[in-house]
């Protein structure tokens, strides 16, 4: 469903991705590990079309389409979802209006009529129940005044509402304590379907105790240098990244 070929990208004139290749099949969970600055978050920014980043070389196909030629909203409506490392606060825009706008934009993109108010409410309640979210959060402005845990929970809730086919979890574990991490990860597992794929970006193995990856990749210097299964994440947890970097230093 996702094919990244020889991807090069820059931010502020500096090359961060230097020929990245990655293939993700339907229903697969891929963990992407690596130190700060390795290019993990750059990859998520480039895939979602963040205008601060420039692709200088390479191709990305998403469900057979040219992903890089699409606007950020088109990419989202094609089924790409990013759980942000730092979810943005939007004062004055209520969660409900925001979710309605997002859902109906997707439906319009698919050639469907907007959801009726009652169908929207039904869907919202169903997902709130599934994720054990109190609806109080939804009456506030988007992410405004939310705690770190609430923000990440809210990302997973939006994911549940929008039902993407590829979700990127960008350091969802950062800034969360053990309990909050467990709740968020379990929430993700609840909304996951057999067809949904995911990229889990993380520094630590902890997240992968809850969301079991099919593949673990290590990103170093803008490229994936090694790929393994869950045992690779364990090894990194024990030994750090040094041994990998020494091996692949160029």
């Amino acid at each position: 469903m996702l094919d990244i070929n020889n991807l090069h990208a820059t931010v502020g004139g500096k090359e961060i991705l230097k020929g990245l290749n990655l293939h993700i099949g339907e229903g697969e969970i891929h963990a992407l590990m690596g130190r700060n600055g390795a290019g993990k978050s750059t990859l998520s920014a480039v895939l979602t079309g963040n205008p601060a980043y420039t692709v200088t070389e390479g191709t990305v196909r998403f469900n057979g389409k040219d992903l890089l030629g699409m606007s950020p909203d088109e990419r989202a409506n094609e089924g790409l979802f990013l759980s942000f490392q730092y979810p943005v606060e939007i004062p004055g825009v209520s969660m409900v209006n925001f979710l309605k706008a997002a859902l109906n934009a997707k439906r319009k993109y698919q050639g469907l009529e907007p959801l009726s108010a009652s169908d929207f409410l039904k869907l919202k309640r169903e997902k709130e129940k599934l994720l054990e979210i109190t609806s109080g959060m939804q009456n506030r402005s988007v992410n405004e005044g939310f705690s770190g845990g609430e923000k990440k929970k809210n990302e997973v809730f939006q994911m549940a509402m929008l039902q993407p086919c590829l979700a990127i979890l960008d350091e969802t574990d950062s800034g969360l304590d053990v309990d909050a991490l467990r709740i968020v990860a379990e929430g993700f597992n609840k909304i996951r379907t057999d067809k949904m794929s995911a990229i889990i970006i993380t520094h630590y193995e902890r997240m992968l105790d809850y969301i079991h990856p099919d593949y673990v990749h290590v990103l170093y210097n803008g490229r994936i240098v090694t790929t393994g299964d869950a045992s690779l994440a364990k090894e990194i947890d024990d030994r750090g990244f040094d041994w990998i970097e020494e091996k692949y230093n160029d």
Binding site: T48, D73, G92, V93, A101
Partner: peptide
């Protein structure tokens, strides 16, 4: 960008921010 990543077209996202 956050709103666009959720599928909301840019012009509509701008309108929502202005209204807010």
């Amino acid at each position: 960008f956050y709103m666009q990543q959720r599928g909301i077209p840019k012009e509509q996202a701008q309108r929502l921010l202005l209204q807010a």
